[in-house]
Design a protein around this nucleic acid. Sequence first.
DNA 1: TATCATTATGTTATAATGACACAATGATAA
DNA 2: TTATCATTGTGTCATTATAACATAATGATA
Lengths: 257, 257
Amino acid sequence: MDLRNRISSHYQNGQEIYLRNISIDCVIFGFHENELKVLLLHTLYSNLWALPGGFILKEEHMDDAADRILLDRTGLDNIYLQQFHVFSKPERSTKEINQKFLKNLGLELEESWMFERFVTVGYNALVDFNKVKKLESDIFSSKCEWFNIDSLPDMHLDHQEIINTALEKMQLDLNYHPIGYNLLPEKFTMPELQKLYETVLNKKLDRRNFQRKIIGAKILKRLEETKKGVAHKAPHYYKFDLKNYQTALKVGLGFDL
Amino acid sequence: MDLRNRISSHYQNGQEIYLRNISIDCVIFGFHENELKVLLLHTLYSNLWALPGGFILKEEHMDDAADRILLDRTGLDNIYLQQFHVFSKPERSTKEINQKFLKNLGLELEESWMFERFVTVGYNALVDFNKVKKLESDIFSSKCEWFNIDSLPDMHLDHQEIINTALEKMQLDLNYHPIGYNLLPEKFTMPELQKLYETVLNKKLDRRNFQRKIIGAKILKRLEETKKGVAHKAPHYYKFDLKNYQTALKVGLGFDL
DNA sequence: TATCATTATGTTATAATGACACAATGATAA
DNA sequence: TTATCATTGTGTCATTATAACATAATGATA
């Protein structure tokens, strides 16, 4: 059976191509219908939902590994991706657990690099939900789906904790760096942008003050075009002023929201 | 020769007790005579100055490993220590480099876990310079000294970059979290605290506005005692209000400096 | 053509901030 | 003994930023 061979090979030869004891897990946030989503895989080995993750090639920069993993799962490239924390509880992945996972796949081995303890580096990614067409799953998983951040399923290992930390980190970052370029379509309205901020920060913002501050940051360009087919007054479309957006990513916005 | 045996044993048996491919480097900041210092070791293997670092035991939490390494070098315990970044350039530690280091120690081996590429996790530590009596060096180094942040010597591998990143991270953190508890003696004056902030932020602050903000944060308790033996008006001593300090560490100060 | 939810823009009171003034202190030196 | 003076402790004020709120414009729907 092909899948069995691939899994078996991975368990027996992975140490030849990957760094030992260290993995990557990506918390991939998407924004859709005013809700914040996270991309999860359903694993074959634990029958639970897990963050898309992987390992670092022996000659690979960790950031490149994260890019590669993200590309494999979402088909997305050039993503605003950043490491945010290393998770290293000794009990987060023990030999017993990892051996049981392999058994669940219908295989048994005495030894494997995969049985060892792994320290995992959490990466944050913000992606445009609408651009993610390809929802692949890897050889260890059967499904790849978006979940609402407020109604996550039972999670593999400490992945719930990783998501919590990722969200906290993003909320902190939001006060310094703009977000949206990777989460929204190219053209978007002010209410859409505001809703994004409200969803991530999990609090209501004053519509007028929000607009004043965001406009003041000069990271937006207003288009003449207005949104069509809306019930009431049509809002203008905006685009990000990429040049100013980039500098704001570096130096911050200079205000809180 | 005892040292040779210890080193040889470390190179040959380390993989039995440590995680592979992952190390820790500590940027230990101290504050003394109005200058920000960093603690460095002079290595026997590269003849350069290096950050105190080490490895993670197979069953050890990474934070505990960092604590252990810091304790070994400074004799300090219960330190405000935090991971701030993972450094993972593939070329930061290659087999050729690592093999040369061993050769510099007067030993040669074909294979060793120490020859492999290491990804390193940077930890920040802020310590009270005056409390650091014990400046030990480990088996790979001959000296352990404080260096002024502005006049660092030639550094091992990418350790200069690690220090730069550590400092940037600390400057960002400073706007949200108080510092000082681990950097200053128990009793300190307002000018001393201000000088600490000025040194870390690398800019002058208005004396009166600084005092107003810090007092407003309610993290200080003023003592009746004033500093003795000073040329002009004697400043009051302050202590940190540890209860409020702790909460400020969590929720932030609420203002910039 | 009136309605109405929504957008776009403006106003105001309050709080935070930066720049600056001046009196109090106390060791030092005349 | 007393004047000096750099430094500390506290206060003021103009400016800016912020939150809360008001009103006009829009355009699809009824």
